[in-house]
């Protein structure tokens, strides 16, 4: 059983926000008006944050720093603990998923997540004329749950799923081709699209995978390691 993990090399990242856009189209994230966005209601599973830099030296070097942030897919996720109905859960391969069909919209998980990766549908999702006919038709086949790119009803929480539907599709394709599923068959949209090839994805339990080798780098760190959440997204420091 794989343990999916992502490595983000901040040294390579050019902050083009391609991951954010690819994620939006892949996962049918609703678009909000500029007024709503100003209120802090934009939904970006893969958000790109400018980091505050302090001191004269930082200003003099005129070097902006950025952090791209998908869901950390923690090994010990605080969001799952607090969900009263089990709408969010960790699957066998360590991916933290969200079932829109069961979520009651209490927003306990959004408050509990220290990374702020969870987003709430304040209104019924909407798209501009023309865009609404070009939504991603992929769905997560299963128990009648609503997951991944499925169109969300209003009032539920959504989040990055490491493009779980792509995982299911990759398995189905391997089956159709009559071969074993290989870990390289499955890549989330953000990793595939990354302009600078700053993102890597793979099985953390496989000692030969790119992610597990990169995780041994001296530049490797995890966000809020001290929070005890054991994130499966590993960053590589700049420089």
């Amino acid at each position: 059983m794989a343990k999916w993990s992502m490595v983000i090399d901040l040294d390579k990242c050019v902050a083009c926000q391609g991951c954010s856009i690819a994620c939006r189209f892949e996962n049918n994230t609703p678009v909000v008006s500029p007024e709503e966005a100003a209120l802090g209601r934009s939904i970006l599973w893969n958000e790109v944050f400018p980091l505050r830099s302090e001191g004269e030296a930082a200003i003099a070097s005129a070097q902006a720093k950025f952090l791209t942030r998908p869901c950390m897919h923690c090994e010990d996720p605080p969001c799952i603990k607090v969900c009263p109905v089990g709408a969010t859960y960790k699957d066998d391969e360590g991916i933290v998923r969200q079932n829109y069909a069961r979520c009651i919209g209490c927003r306990f998980c959004t408050v509990a997540c220290p990374y702020g990766v969870r987003y709430f549908n304040w209104y019924e999702p909407s798209w501009e004329e023309g865009m609404d006919t070009h939504l991603n038709p992929d769905r997560v086949a299963g128990r009648g749950d609503l997951e991944g790119p499925a169109i969300r009803p209003k009032g539920v929480v959504e989040k990055c799923t490491f493009c779980i539907h792509r995982h299911h599709k990759a398995i189905a394709r391997a089956e159709a081709e009559g071969r074993e599923f290989r870990n390289s068959d499955y890549t989330p949209a953000c990793v595939q699209t990354c302009t600078a090839k700053a993102r890597f994805f793979g099985d953390f339990d496989d000692p030969n995978s790119t992610v597990s080798r990169l995780s041994q780098s001296r530049r490797a760190f995890r966000l809020l390691d001290e929070a005890g959440t054991s994130p499966k997204v590993i960053y590589l420091h700049e420089g």
Binding site: V82, V85, G86, C103, I104, G105, C106, R107, P153, K154
Partner: peptide, 24 residues
């Protein structure tokens, strides 16, 4: 609490799928 819920129509999920690990 009901007013604050995004999906008050699904309040029965708390009985159907209640997880006692949640402080809620």
């Amino acid at each position: 609490i009901m007013i604050d819920m995004g999906r008050p129509d699904r309040v029965m999920n708390v009985i159907l799928y209640g997880r006692f690990e949640s402080p809620l």
